[in-house]
Write a protein that binds this DNA or RNA. Structure first.
Lengths: 189, 189
DNA sequence: AGTTGGTCTTGACAAAAATCAAGAAGTTTA
DNA sequence: TAAACTTCTTGATTTTTGTCAAGACCAACT
């Protein structure tokens, strides 16, 4: 069973039958380091699942890249506003390392709904879960200092700090690279 | 046609038939100023639509109230993680003024799905829309200063600053009341 | 009218974080 | 291997924001 299937099974609790139907629509895709899964302004007509590697989602604001999220193994990558509402994409989605993805295009995605009865329900639950995660993230910015946000992320996933350029983590945490560097030093004691 | 029906119609583009089915499940409820629609730790078994009045969603972190959102006419109020996943609620949802809501309880909510074919699809679209709004909100904290966040909100909804205690707006914007006060003075020039 | 309680503002100061600049360390490229 | 890049760190400094304390303002209540 692939990581994708494990993920879907664990998360959604679908039958093995539905599981194989769903996963059969996903096709393996590899990205080389620095390749783009999606570029701002295009239409996002596919959904990716990260099997291996690291992917960054960012947007250019003025002359600065703002990193919204770093996806590692087990995460989906997509521009939801584009995928669901057929608007132009807001995010650049770029491989930070060589990556293996499972990707489904929009046409196949819509097919799932015709084959798996509960699909729209599962979609709803998944997006609702993502929503609550984002709610928490907003709250960290309303109630925590840069130092607290750094410590939280570091405790949640230390490995990330070895695998991802720190400037991107700094941006994702809402601070400058210099501040992140100093907080690291401080936390290391 | 009520505000609720207008909202549903505008937003989801359902037929008049479906619209009346959906709205018939919502019941008018009034809240007095300071009444709670929901308290942290309880289960959120209802969804509310704000017809009139102002409602604050906040959470107690340590000894501080952190205001996540202020809902005015046209907004839904709910603790999504509780309503969808049947977990204990994370938010306190309290009326800042006397309010008129349209409220649907969970049992009736589930009935809609049996009566309106596209219901789960509509739910999905609605939650997806909420998700993209939250994405933007996260981005404001990654890329904007307190001053810029204040100006953005003020330009978006000046009225709010006359209707809502400023301390709550400050919290929602991720700054102290003192900072908000100074930014107001500065912007007024 | 006076008191009380809550809210907002202001000032002085402290802390946090950003900016600017330089240099160290590590990679990639030629 | 050396040169060129890029990334990260560090120091000095400025700016932004938070904290604490006091007072102004306003509304509600007695």
């Amino acid at each position: 069973m692939s990581e994708l299937e494990k993920y879907i099974k664990t998360y959604f609790g679908v039958s093995n039958d539905d599981l194989s139907k769903i996963s059969s629509y996903f096709k393996p895709v590899t990205l080389k380091k620095n390749d783009y899964f999606l570029k701002e302004g295009r239409y996002c007509d596919k959904l990716g699942f990260v099997q291996r590697g690291i992917i960054r989602e960012y947007v250019l604001i003025g002359d600065k890249e703002v990193t919204k999220w770093i996806s590692t193994s087990g995460y989906f990558v997509v521009d939801l506003s584009s995928f669901v509402f057929h608007q132009t994409a807001r995010w650049n989605i770029q491989a930070l390392t060589d990556c293996e993805l499972y990707v489904i295009d929009q046409k196949d995605y819509q097919q799932i709904g015709k084959v798996v009865t509960r699909w729209t329900e599962l979609e709803k639950l998944f997006i609702a879960k993502c929503f609550t995660v984002l709610e928490d993230r907003v709250l960290t910015h309303l109630s925590m200092t840069a130092e607290e946000r750094y410590n939280q992320l570091f405790n949640f996933n230390k490995e990330l700090f070895n695998q991802v350029p720190l400037q991107y983590l700094a941006s994702m945490l809402g601070m400058t690279p210099e501040t992140l560097s100093r907080l690291r030093k401080k936390a290391a004691g």
